[in-house]
Computed example of a mutant assay.
Amino acid sequence: MSENSPDRPTWDEYWARVGSEDFLAAKNLLELSSIRNDAEQWLEWHQDKQFDDDGNPAGWSDPHPTLDWDAWVADYEETGRGWSSTEHRLFRIVAALVASDERPFPMRETLGYLGSWETEVWRVLVNWGTGGNNREYPGRSTVVPRH
């Protein structure tokens, strides 16, 4: 990294490079709550080793932002968080979308008790589940709030 690089990339710098529908759904869910601030602590600059055509080391790539999702999830499981029960439920959904292992969660106990975030969580998940990417194009269905 250069001496002028900030210690940690910004939230927007990281997400500008992400195209995965799963991760973009997780982003929208994180932005419903202050757990986003917790996830941001796992942003870091990363460089990849570069190799020439013969397979010899040839330097490093330019720095790019990453978020160590697996480390964030593992840290949550190891140390816990002082969040509300609803934030813990939201975390379970996000972790199921971003963790590299299969991460089931109890649907009724998680999706059924999201309080004031319920409609927005379902909008994000329906968009994701019906082929939308939560950025440029919507899914095949939309959630209409009840009046």
Results as ranks from 00 to 15, higher is better:
L29C: 02
R17I: 04
G80I: 02
Y76T: 01
S5G: 01
H64M: 01
F91P: 03
W11N: 02
R92P: 04
V124S: 08
L43Y: 08
A96R: 04
A58T: 06
I35V: 13
T142D: 05
N4W: 06
R17F: 11
T142Q: 13
P63G: 03
A74H: 08
P65T: 00
V126P: 11
F23S: 05
Y76V: 01
S100I: 09
E13A: 00
V143G: 14
V143Y: 14
E77A: 12
F105Q: 07
H147I: 08
T110N: 12
Y76F: 14
L43G: 10
W69P: 05
M107H: 12
D54Y: 12
T66E: 09
M1V: 10
R81S: 13
D52Y: 09
N28E: 14
L43S: 13
A39Q: 06
S141T: 05
W69G: 08
A74K: 10
T130D: 02
V94I: 15
G115K: 02
S61H: 07
R17Y: 04
E3L: 12
S116D: 13
E118K: 14
N134F: 11
H88S: 06
D70K: 01
F91K: 04
W69I: 01
S141D: 05
N56C: 09
D75Y: 10
T79Y: 15
T130I: 02
Q47R: 15
W45S: 00
G82W: 07
A96C: 08
S85K: 11
L90D: 00
W69C: 03
D70H: 08
E3A: 13
P9A: 02
R103K: 14
E120T: 02
T86P: 04
S85Y: 05
Y14T: 00
P65Q: 01
A25K: 02
A71R: 13
H88C: 03
F23N: 09
T119Y: 11
T86N: 05
N28Q: 15
D7E: 12
L32E: 02
S85D: 08
L29T: 00
A95Y: 06
N37M: 09
G132R: 08
R92S: 15
E109C: 03
F51M: 09
L67E: 03
W83K: 08
D7R: 10
R89H: 07
Q50K: 08
R108Y: 08
Q41P: 08
E44V: 01
F51Q: 06
V98T: 15
E40M: 13
E40C: 11
S141L: 15
R123S: 14
D52G: 11
P138A: 14
D54C: 07
K27R: 15
M1N: 03
N127A: 10
G139Y: 13
W128D: 00
E77M: 07
S5C: 01
D54K: 11
E13W: 00
W72E: 03
A74V: 02
F91W: 12
T119S: 11
L24C: 10
S33R: 06
S116C: 06
T66K: 14
F105M: 03
R146N: 13
T119W: 11
R135F: 12
A96N: 15
P65C: 01
H88D: 05
S116Y: 10
A99K: 02
R135K: 15
L29R: 04
E44Q: 10
E21M: 00
T10K: 01
R8C: 01
E31I: 04
R146G: 13
D62T: 06
Y137D: 04
V126D: 07
T79S: 14
D70F: 05
